[in-house]
Simulated assay, not measured.
Amino acid sequence: MKIADFGDVRLHYRTDGPDDGPPVVFANSLGTDMRLWDPVLPLLPAGLRVIRYDKRGHGLSGCPAAPYSMGSLVTDAEKLLDHLGVKDCIFVGLSIGGMIAQGLAVKRLDLVRGIVLSNTGARIGTQALWDDRIAAVRAGGIESLADAVMERWFSKAFRATPELELWRNMLARQEDTGYVGCSAAISGTDFYTTTASLRLPALGIAGDEDGSTPPDLVRETIGLIPGSKFHLIRKAGHLPCVEQPEEYARVLTGFLRDTGHI
């Protein structure tokens, strides 16, 4: 575990694998930390340089005062990759992490040779939806939303397992300020025009029971990028890397091979 100090925020990050391995960067969803990727990483090919980090307001990273802008979240990722000397990575982003992936690819194509847009959109939700969610967190904390979020995050079958408590606890123990800050960033983001300008290898991944970013949204977003591919994971919700890690790893590995990254 390491901390990078960028002045306005300190980011917790972790690298695994050889320093000269092909870099793959993972960005988490709203309300989760870098442990989101634990089920998938052991299933990926050996030799990758795997980089994970907690975005501002989440996990062990610093939590500046809300609200945040999507620009600041993209800049955080940019500064981290520059700090680590990363070029030409595959950037895997889930939900808000997928928005960060889109913004970073537009801003710094030298850093990113391909993107995986998992359970995300060029725009997610509406201003009113996020305003209501922010008000609810300010009034009653993340705990007040936790059960409803679990219904959107996971399939009915997974919600019946004891493992659900792990993810509910992860969500509820995030900083309220960080959740509000990143919710505001999502609320203010519409990447339809900018994402449509991208020309790089891209893969979209969706879960067929995703209540946050339904498959049609993911398909529409990835379809903005010419030559992109789309994969639907069945029996999975918003976090298919948790519910179906074997399939997720297989699809991701295929993309790494198809792009010549490994």
Rank of each mutant, 00 (worst) to 15 (best):
A202F: 02
T193L: 03
P201E: 06
P215G: 06
I222D: 12
L198N: 03
E220Y: 13
L232I: 11
L224D: 13
F230S: 12
G223Q: 12
G211T: 07
A202V: 10
A206I: 04
D210Q: 05
G207Q: 03
L224S: 11
K229A: 15
L232F: 11
D208K: 01
Y192P: 00
S228I: 14
A202H: 02
R234S: 15
S212A: 15
A206H: 07
G223D: 14
P226I: 09
D208L: 03
D216N: 04
H231W: 14
S228W: 13
E209F: 01
T194C: 00
P214I: 04
S197P: 00
R219T: 05
D208I: 03
T195W: 01
T213M: 02
F230K: 11
L217D: 12
L200Y: 05
P214N: 08
P214L: 04
K229C: 13
A196F: 02
D210H: 05
D210S: 04
R199G: 00
G211A: 07
K229D: 15
V218S: 08
T213F: 06
I222T: 14
L232R: 10
T194M: 01
S197T: 14
S197R: 12
P214R: 06
D210M: 04
P201C: 03
L217P: 11
G204D: 07
E220A: 14
G227H: 10
G207K: 02
P215Y: 06
E209V: 01
T194K: 03
E220P: 01
A202T: 15
I205R: 02
V218M: 08
T194S: 13
I233Q: 09
V218Y: 08
S212M: 12
E209A: 12
G223L: 11
P201G: 02
T193C: 00
T195Q: 08
L203Q: 09
P215W: 06
S197H: 01
V218A: 08
E209W: 01
D216I: 01
S228R: 12
S228F: 14
T193Y: 01
R219D: 14
G211E: 08
I222A: 09
T195D: 03
L200Q: 05
A202I: 03
F230E: 13
G223I: 13
I222R: 07
D210F: 05
Y192F: 05
D210G: 06
L232N: 11
E220V: 00
G211M: 04
T193G: 01
E220Q: 13
L200W: 06
D210P: 10
R234V: 13
L232A: 09
I233V: 15
F191V: 00
P215H: 05
G207H: 05
